[in-house]
Design a protein around this nucleic acid. Structure first.
Length: 271
DNA sequence: AGGCGTTCCTGGGGGC
DNA sequence: TGCCCCCAGGAACGCC
């Protein structure tokens, strides 16, 4: 389940190998993997074009060309890895790119939720996404405004990419645990001081997770090292074990349609 | 506005 | 060993 830190880790790992490379081809193995373009369009727009940067926006991996971008969303089980020209991709490969230097970038995706997009620029992605939580411009006031201006379940808000970009199920639970907020709290009822704590928790947790190469529950990158943040998790996946803070038994409930881990003793419900 | 269910997909785990 | 059912959950979409 790649979220912001995992996607950033993938970008960090593949960027050096992609920078300045010239695309020879991009080929779908599974029919629906190209979400908004055809092979023909790809041929016209990116064959022979040089990659000038590889970056991340929300949970998208962005391959930047002088004119246009290729955006890759890993969704649940997507992985990217390099092979040499004549190597055979795994049975779960849904697409691949080839480059002038003979390398091949494989998009591997067991559950086939992942998609590749071709866009002129970042406009269509930006308009569907809220602020980047790790950018300096993301301030406590912005988070307070997000929460206070809506009357919505706080976990649902954290997961909503239009509101805040990049957070998924694992880091939502971890951030709420660290800031001692019950996931079913109503956003506008949470005191400002608690929201400031939530802001700090999000920043710290995402930054630490990137430094640890993310959380590997299902491997998200084949070439790279596995994510070590798995060892730092305090609440996610820890049903029935003891809360690190208060020793109370950790529960698993459903919030916003997702499996949610929490400590009902030290995470306060505001409603 | 916002909550909820459904869809897309497949592997893996639990129950029997 | 095997079979069935449910669960995992990111995002879009339709409905109420």
């Amino acid at each position: 389940m790649p979220e912001l830190p995992e996607v950033q880790t993938v970008v960090n790992q593949i960027r050096p190998d992609l920078l300045n490379q010239t695309v020879k081809s991009i080929t779908p193995i599974w029919g629906k993997v190209f979400h908004n373009f055809t092979e023909k369009e790809a041929r016209l727009k990116i064959y022979g074009k040089q990659i000038i940067d590889v970056s991340r926006r929300a949970k998208f991996i962005i391959i930047n060309f002088k004119e246009g971008i290729v955006a890759i969303h890993l969704r649940m089980t997507g992985k990217l890895y390099f092979l040499n020209k004549n190597d055979v991709p795994s049975k779960y490969a849904t697409a691949y790119l080839t480059f002038k230097n003979g390398k091949k970038l494989i998009f591997d995706d067991v559950r086939k939720f992942g998609r590749i997009y071709l866009h002129k620029n970042m406009k269509s992605i930006n308009k569907r996404h809220g602020p980047e939580p790790l950018e300096d411009s993301f301030s406590p006031e912005i988070l307070i405004n997000i929460m206070k201006s809506r009357k919505r379940n706080v976990k649902a808000l954290l997961l909503d990419q239009k509101i805040l970009a990049g957070i998924g199920n694992i880091y939502a639970d971890e951030s709420l645990w660290k800031s001692q907020i019950h996931p079913n709290s109503l956003s506008h009822q949470i005191p400002k001081i608690r929201l400031k704590k939530l802001y700090e928790s999000i920043k710290i947790i995402l930054t630490d997770a990137i430094n640890q190469n993310g959380t590997t529950i299902i491997n998200f990158s084949v070439n790279g090292e596995s994510g070590k943040y798995t060892n730092e998790l305090k609440i996610y996946g820890k049903e029935n074990s003891k809360c690190f803070r208060c020793n109370f038994k950790i529960k698993k409930i459903r919030v916003a349609g997702r499996g949610t881990y929490l400590c009902t003793k030290c995470q306060k419900k505001y409603n």
